[in-house]
């Protein structure tokens, strides 16, 4: 099992290198330069060129890429923002934590709501407990986060005056953004859990358990659910990754200083160090989440555990 974890951790290296390479390549082919963006329209081209040269912006792509990776790996240095002159890590880390907080809260809500409703809908198939939540989930899955965000702002902030409309000062500030980003994945979780449960309930081992006289509660929770949860765990892991990268909408609407909104803002200034470092951080986080999902998967699924135990892994 340890070998499996180490193997997956080592897989992070080519992933990060691949991500940096792709982002660097994309940024290199887009027009514009930080010198002009920073010095403005009235700056001499010679000064703009000098500014870019000082940043190392004009270096050939392979050298620039190599220098960046070297600084990142050896010195743990992501460089300085072209725009604010601040160390990139100092800029992105607090924002990343905000996004992470929001994403975890969103995933928690999405799982807490989606999974129980999905189980109940499967167990009570064709009843109101199935049709009503399924119908609601159908609509909610299609609802964009920004529409939900604005609706929440209108009702809970403006009409009911219950929650603050912006910022990150207290727990109250996170309620609306977390709800806005969690409802679509909650609906997906519900539908995913339901279909997974329905599939499990129809399996022979469930029928056997019932035939042996096991209580319905035991059949559902012990036999069906444990097997049905395997794909749901993957779905939750994926939704966490999606929320980390996609929380930008909630960040914008609720004025949360997260990493997504930072990256979007800096694209206009071609602030490459921030864009690249932010994207790398998101990709590392996504990869770690996927690793965590795989480890949980291995713990939940005895077949995977057995496979790695047999190979002394």
């Amino acid at each position: 099992m340890y070998r499996y974890v180490i193997k997956r951790l080592l897989f992070l290296i080519p992933t990060i290198l691949g991500v940096t390479l792709i982002i660097y390549a994309v940024m290199s082919i887009t027009p514009g330069d930080p010198g002009r963006a920073m010095l403005g329209t009235s700056a001499l081209q010679a000064d703009v060129d000098a500014y870019n040269a000082a940043l190392g912006y004009n270096l050939p792509f392979p050298i620039k890429y190599f220098n960046y990776v070297k600084a990142m790996v050896i010195d743990q240095d992501f460089g300085f923002s072209y725009l604010t002159k601040q160390p990139v890590f100092d800029e992105i880390w607090p924002r990343f934590l905000e996004t992470l907080k929001l994403a975890f809260l969103g995933v928690f809500i999405a799982a807490s709501v989606g999974i129980p409703f999905g189980i109940y809908a499967a167990v009570k198939q064709y009843s109101l407990w199935d049709t009503v939540p399924s119908l609601v989930a159908f609509f909610m899955a299609a609802f964009p986060s920004f529409v939900l965000g604005l609706l929440f702002l209108y009702f809970f902030s403006l009409k009911l005056n219950l929650l603050p409309s912006y910022g990150i000062g207290s727990f109250e500030h996170y309620i609306m953004p977390a709800l806005a980003i969690s409802i679509p994945p909650a609906a997906q979780n519900m539908r995913f859990t339901k279909s997974s449960m329905l599939e499990a309930i129809r399996q022979d081992y469930v029928r056997t358990a019932r035939a042996k006289g096991a209580a319905e509660r035991t059949v559902v929770w012990k036999h069906a659910l444990r097997n049905a949860l395997l794909p749901v765990v993957t779905q939750i892991g994926l939704s966490l990754g999606v929320l980390i990268a996609g929380a930008v909408v909630a960040e914008k609407i609720f004025s949360i200083p997260g990493i997504g909104s930072l990256i979007v803002d800096r694209i206009a200034y071609k602030d490459e160090p921030v864009i690249i470092a932010g994207t790398i951080l998101i990709s590392i986080c996504f990869t770690l989440v996927m690793l965590l999902v795989d480890i949980i998967y291995a713990f939940v699924d005895p077949r995977i555990r057995a496979k790695y135990s047999n190979t002394k892994g």
Binding site: P164, S165, Y166, P257
Partner: peptide
């Protein structure tokens, strides 16, 4: 200074006396 990039959110914050 409160950073609110979304216009609709800014209007709601103003209407809400924030």
């Amino acid at each position: 200074y409160i950073v609110i990039s979304d216009d609709a959110a800014a209007v709601i914050a103003f209407e809400n006396d924030e």
